[in-house]
Amino acid sequence: MAVITMTINDELVSGVEGQSLLSLIREQGIELPTLCHLEGLEARGGCRLCLVEMQSTQRLLPACTTTAQEGMSIQTHSERLVRYRRMILELLFAERNHVCAVCVMNGRCELQDEAAKIGMDHVRYDYLVPELPMDATHDKFAIDHNRCILCTRCVSVCDSVEGAHTWDVMGRGVNSRVITDLNQPWGSSRSCTSCGKCVQVCPTGALANKGSTVAEMVKRHDFLQWILDGREKKQWVMHNGGSEGRR
């Protein structure tokens, strides 16, 4: 494998040819938020939080879907990028009813974390307060569309890792919604294997175990790497001892 050299935030770094910009940036210990991308799932480029600035053209490119190339020079935290990230987070908070105080993921939510990290203390846009339903027909899990940020990690993991493709998206624009089967109640879904992978990868409180109440839900992402390593390398090893949840 060929080695490439490029510049991140004015520092020379080296990586492997074909590596995504996001993984190279994170290898340097630089924190870059991603709400749609999750290591192990196919890169999507939808949340636009991992946008980085090309020094040569000033163009913004999503780090998750861009391949690192020899001689590239990028900035990850320019004033413009930080301003845009905050605006995007504000837009997400305004889109649906993200009321942390009554959310099962309060304190462990990725959306909440990113907002706190960037110092988002208020939302300057109108709250759209849509009236969205919940679906608690499944035995073990429930979905609350009010918390969904349409990252479609659930769709991706269900299709590519579990192979069930229970989840998909219907509608478009701000009226999009994730659905099970052909918009049937989750509990009546015949394709759902009740594996719970969708629940574990969901960044917010949209998908949760039934029975968890405010701030009780703990999600684990490490299972994803465990399955992928097992499949590809035939090594079934849990990297962090298997006991820890996220954080």
Partner: peptide, 21 residues
């Protein structure tokens, strides 16, 4: 544009709605 946004990326999905408002 609000009606026709596909909903994949956040700036277009929610940004157009806010601009329209």
């Amino acid at each position: 544009c609000t009606d026709e946004s596909c909903g994949k990326c956040v700036p277009c999905r929610v940004g157009t709605v806010q601009m329209h408002r």
